[in-house]
Write a protein that binds this DNA or RNA. Structure first.
Length: 227
DNA sequence: TAGGCCATCTGGTCCT
DNA sequence: AGGACCAGATGGCCTA
């Protein structure tokens, strides 16, 4: 802003009694040495001063307009930042709600965003499986539901979603992150059932899909008994 | 100290 | 035109 102002000031000094076109208000178009400006014998000192004053007014007006525009821009940006912050807060609140709904995990560890989404994905899949198994259970005894034979995937592995590729496509945090030892089970992009780790869990796993499924099968069983 | 995660800012794009 | 959404940049905090 200061720079703009000083430029205008400089220009107004350079273009002594030039024609009053704002757009030609520059060093190039309003050179004091141009023939046009050399030949102005009709201009009295009073008129010249008048022109100068007019020009100064216009310059001040333009600078003021620039300042107003700048202020408006700044205000809009501040408002946009505020909305964006709010939006992200809402998103985080929704993620917190999701964390609360997801099956129990150690209270002292908070799932990261990506882990929350992946676990939710697996959880939904496991719920679907539970429903499928519940349907099967209508024909078979409920007590057998926990057997691994009942935990086979509902559908065969889709191309690109076998156990190996599934594991290799996990998040960066799934193999090295220290934040969650059950991250393997929060890293499935497509088919959680394809991972044996998620079926039977790592030795130090605090949470596994297998456990989750068994819990849900129990819930589903009691649901079927009482409803 | 490097790396991971996060909040915030910012400019661009799309939508109403 | 203004708001929503998105992705990149940046800096702070934490942990191994």
């Amino acid at each position: 802003m200061d720079r703009v102002f000083s430029d205008y000031e400089t220009c107004s000094q350079m273009s002594y009694c030039s024609s009053d076109e704002e757009d030609s208000f520059s060093m190039q178009s309003a050179s004091p040495f141009s023939s046009e400006h050399m030949s102005s014998p009709a201009q009295t000192p009073e008129k010249c001063q008048e022109e100068k004053d007019k020009r100064k007014k216009r310059v001040r007006s333009r600078v003021k307009n620039d300042a107003v525009l700048h202020t408006i821009k700044k205000t809009r940006r501040v408002k946009a930042n505020d909305r964006e912050r709010n939006r992200m807060h809402n998103l985080n609140s929704a993620l917190d709600e999701l964390r609360g709904i997801l099956p129990s995990f150690p209270d002292d560890t908070k799932l990261t965003k990506i882990e929350t989404l992946r676990l939710a994905h697996n959880y939904i899949w496991a719920l679907s499986e539970t429903l499928r198994l519940a349907d099967q259970s209508k024909e078979k005894p409920l007590k057998n539901l926990g057997h691994p034979a009942y935990l086979s995937p509902a559908t065969p592995p889709s191309p690109g979603s076998d156990a190996e590729s599934w594991m290799s496509s996990s998040s960066p945090s799934s193999s090295s992150s220290s934040s969650s030892s059950f991250s393997v089970c929060t890293s499935s992009p497509s088919s959680p059932a394809m991972s044996e780790d998620c079926y039977y869990g790592h030795t130090d796993s605090l949470f596994s899909l297998h456990t989750l499924q068994q819990n849900m099968i129990q819930h589903a069983s009691s649901f079927l008994q009482y409803h």
